[in-house]
Simulated scan of single mutants.
Amino acid sequence: MKPLTFVDVCSGAGGLALGLEQAGFEPRLLLDHDELAVTTLRMNRPRWNVLHTDLLDFDPTDHPVSYDVDLLAAGLPRVKSSATVGRVESEVEERLLEATIYLVHAIRPRAVLIENVPGLAHADAYQRFRDFARAELVHLGYDFSWCVVNAVDFGVPQNRKQGVLVAVERGRAQEFRVPTPTVREPVTVGDALGPSMAARGWPDAARWAAQADQPAPTLVGGSKNRGGADLGPTGAKRKWATMGVDAHTVGDEVPGPDFVWDPDLGRGGMVKITVEQAALLQGFPSSWEVAGRKTARYRQIGHATPPPVGRALGRSVAEALCGEPALSAAG
């Protein structure tokens, strides 16, 4: 069986594309407007066809390789409420959602996968987009469904809910099933990061891991208009503090043998999560490299679709298209 093919727009650090590759899909074209994200993709997969361009400027007639593909995938920037970002930024993100639907007109994939914030699937704030997507996709001959998935159900040590639109050519759409959880018990932060916390000989790594006995709250990549990296809003920071982690910043390295871990002392007595550890909390393999300086690297990681979620969604799409999982060379 030939591998299924896909085009991935707004590819970012490659989380969704990597997951689809693991599900047996073969990329025809990936694109992103961010130069560092493009560098990240090319570093990790030199054979991938990666285009440095904005989705809003992309013309598929200049890239015929994007036609006749099985899947159009889009892990779009997570649209925030007006309380967290400026209206101009939010409008750009909404335009990207619509541009993805218009791209369906142009390349006519057999299936479409759009991932974004959980509210995209059900919140009143996104009803206009859902109505727009319904009208366009029904006209083009697709049936579709909305669902919300949580990364923690797929072995990712993070509570991260995502709103997902899956559209499949009419006649096969009834074969699509929302992916079922792949783990019975959630992976905790301590499970995921314990070994890396001990890498420089920190004697309290095991004690810390025992306290970090829950999944992480949702990592937030933040906006380029914001300052340095942190692990999320106030509620997330409080959750991290219960695990003895200072979430107001991102660390440069894991603790050494002389670090005294005492959360009762405040932020100075807490550990900091590094960019590499944030990638592990997103389900990236440790071999995945991210280009740029610390804040830019963390931003790419925080915005990414966790690869295990991409893999689960990809397998469900493959089963709808083929009646069985895609042929996977990546496992």
Rank of each mutant, 00 (worst) to 15 (best):
P217M: 02
D143N: 14
D204A: 15
T40L: 13
D262Q: 11
L16V: 13
A106E: 14
V290F: 13
R172F: 09
D57E: 15
R45D: 02
M1Y: 10
I101H: 03
A278I: 06
E185R: 14
Q162C: 09
R42W: 05
T218P: 07
P181S: 13
P285A: 09
L321D: 02
P77N: 09
L36N: 11
S11Y: 02
A205D: 06
L72Y: 12
G141V: 12
R200M: 11
L51D: 06
V9I: 15
N44M: 09
G283C: 11
F144E: 08
P181L: 10
A74H: 03
L29Y: 10
L219T: 01
L120P: 03
A135P: 04
N116Y: 00
D258H: 12
V317M: 08
T295Y: 00
V178M: 07
E35S: 14
P27S: 07
R110A: 14
V189Q: 01
L327T: 12
L321P: 00
H52A: 15
P233R: 14
E91T: 05
Y67D: 14
K161N: 07
F176D: 00
P195S: 10
G19I: 03
V88P: 00
D131N: 12
G227Y: 06
P64C: 06
G310D: 09
G323P: 03
I114Q: 05
E89N: 09
V138S: 14
T218Y: 04
L96E: 00
C147M: 15
G314N: 06
R172C: 11
G256C: 12
A121F: 07
L51T: 08
R184V: 09
L20M: 11
V220R: 11
T61A: 15
G256S: 08
E21H: 13
L51Q: 14
L72P: 11
E98A: 14
T84I: 05
Q277R: 05
P215R: 11
Y67P: 00
A106I: 00
A326N: 14
A320P: 02
S287C: 04
D204W: 02
T5K: 15
S90H: 11
D264M: 07
V117E: 01
S11F: 05
P186G: 13
H303Q: 15
N49Q: 13
P217K: 00
A74T: 11
P307D: 03
H33M: 10
L72V: 07
G302A: 12
D252M: 06
G119E: 03
